[in-house]
């Protein structure tokens, strides 16, 4: 597959920007609109764009499906793990305050960061997984038959 040169050039310029923007949304979620959900989707969009331009196989080389699967689980575990840590520290599930007992609001800060990171990972992976799953199906009929 040899994509159009303009598309290739433009996308090469865009994809890092999209990824950057995703992280901006992720970390600015503390102060303004944003957060793991939105950032995850944007991050996935970067990869999807790459796949659209350069082909699914190239994208799979860049981000292998096995990573994606592990990413999904890792995201959920990061979220849940935060809760488990607070449990182990003797408080309620996801009660971030205990992370830094002498300054609860800091703990809340760290906690939400970890959780949002988990969300980012999970959402981005799931989006990619869905895309891979649909994209990599071999149609057993030719396009005209649809």
């Amino acid at each position: 597959m040899t994509p159009h040169v303009i598309l290739r050039v433009v996308s090469k310029l865009l994809i890092p920007l999209i990824a950057m923007f995703a992280f901006y949304v992720q970390f600015h979620g503390d102060y303004g609109p944003g957060g793991g959900f939105q950032a995850g989707v944007i991050l996935a969009a970067a990869v999807i764009l790459y796949a659209l331009i350069f082909g699914l196989d190239e994208a799979k080389k860049a981000i292998p499906p096995s990573w994606v699967r592990i990413g999904m689980t890792l995201g959920v575990l990061l979220y849940g793990g935060t809760g488990v840590v607070t449990w182990l520290l003797g408080s309620e599930f996801l009660s971030y305050g205990v992370l830094t007992p002498d300054h609860p609001s800091h703990g809340q800060h760290y906690g939400i960061l970890a959780v949002e990171l988990g969300v980012l990972l999970a959402v981005a992976s799931v989006m990619l997984a869905i895309f891979y799953a649909f994209g990599s199906r071999q149609p057993e009929l030719s396009d005209e038959d649809w």
Binding site: Y31, G32, P33, H103, P104, S105, H106, Q108, H109
Partner: peptide
């Protein structure tokens, strides 16, 4: 307004 804190958000206590 959009629910974005415009006042000083350096202090976690106020945040909450």
């Amino acid at each position: 307004q959009p629910p974005i804190l415009v006042d000083d958000h350096s202090s976690g206590g106020e945040h909450a």
